[in-house]
């Protein structure tokens, strides 16, 4: 899984068009436009299409035609998650509804004084979860630890349109700053939200059995959870229907367990979610590649 380069796909004009559609015509019309755009990507984005078909076919056991179908749906669904994200930013997300399984666990963490590690994956749409948590009264500040891979122009545009995201971003850098940032946020009793399914070449990883084959996962999120003694929960936000999300949080695991324990628990939940929502797996690279690219 080391081929991920830390950059997001898409160009500024595309983002502007979608924000315009959402702002003036609403989500339904934006989704209609998205059907055309996602078809274009399905037809011409050869590499991610091939990767996804292979993933569904070889690793999830779907036949070839079902794998192609799931890939087509997958391209539409990732577009929907981006459109929904814009809709929240520009205040046009009132049509979206959600269920919340495990709200009490997040509340329990929020009421404690040790902060909490909310570990997720590129399955579904975490940013939507952040927005919906606030609507549910979980006002504890969230810090998202992420590779700062979005194009600068797009970031500036979204900042201008929306006033910026409703959470604090802790960018992963080559110095100590993000480690300190995470520690300080936990000491303030805040949430740390981090994805544990991608890593950059050279990072420390842990190899676990995933869908019956060995795959590498980043060691960092589990190591941090272990050392900084924060409760850990695995959080996912997946689309059940066009306008309905399902948020879920697992029973918190107490801090100070071994990183391997957290990692194994994460992979178990990730497999369950992936099997339930295969069309919302948004990792467009060979997840089972064992060696780093030089």
């Amino acid at each position: 899984m080391s081929e991920w380069k830390g950059r997001t796909r898409g160009n500024l004009l595309g983002y502007k068009i979608f924000v315009l559609f959402i702002r003036y015509f609403g989500l339904r019309v934006a989704y209609a436009l998205l059907r055309v755009v996602s078809l274009y990507f399905y037809l011409f984005a050869f590499k991610p299409r091939g990767v996804m078909i292979q993933f569904y076919n070889e690793h999830m056991g779907y036949n070839y035609f079902r794998s192609r179908f799931l890939t087509r749906i997958n391209f539409y669904k990732i577009g929907q998650t981006l459109v929904d994200r814009f809709a929240f930013m520009v205040g046009r997300a009132d049509i979206l509804e959600y269920t919340f399984d495990g709200h009490q666990y997040l509340k329990q963490i929020a009421d404690g004084n040790k902060g909490g590690m909310l570990i997720s994956a590129h399955l579904g749409n975490w940013e939507i979860a952040g927005n919906m948590m606030k609507e549910k009264g979980l006002t504890k500040r969230s810090n998202i630890v992420m590779f700062d891979g979005e194009h600068e122009q797009i970031k500036k545009y979204m900042q201008k349109e929306s006033g910026g995201p409703s959470f604090n971003v802790i960018p992963i850098k080559n110095d100590l700053s993000h480690i300190i940032g995470i520690k300080q946020a936990l000491e303030r009793g805040e949430f740390i939200c981090i994805h544990a399914d991608r890593f950059l070449p050279g990072s420390r990883t842990i190899t676990l059995n995933f869908l019956g084959k060995p795959a590498r996962f980043p060691y960092g999120p589990f190591h941090i959870a272990s050392k900084y003694n924060a409760p850990v929960t695995f959080v996912f936000s997946v689309k059940q229907a066009d306008y309905l999300y399902e948020l879920s949080a697992t029973v918190p695991m107490d801090g100070m367990q071994k990183p391997e324990v957290y990692a194994q628990a994460f992979v178990t939940i990730l497999e369950e979610k992936l099997k339930a929502y295969p069309d919302q797996w948004f990792n467009y690279f060979d997840f089972f590649k064992m060696e780093d690219v030089a």
Binding site: I179, R204, G220
Partner: peptide, 9 residues
Amino acid sequence: DSLDYVDLV
């Protein structure tokens, strides 16, 4: 590496 820094802190 950055994870050693976690330990160092």
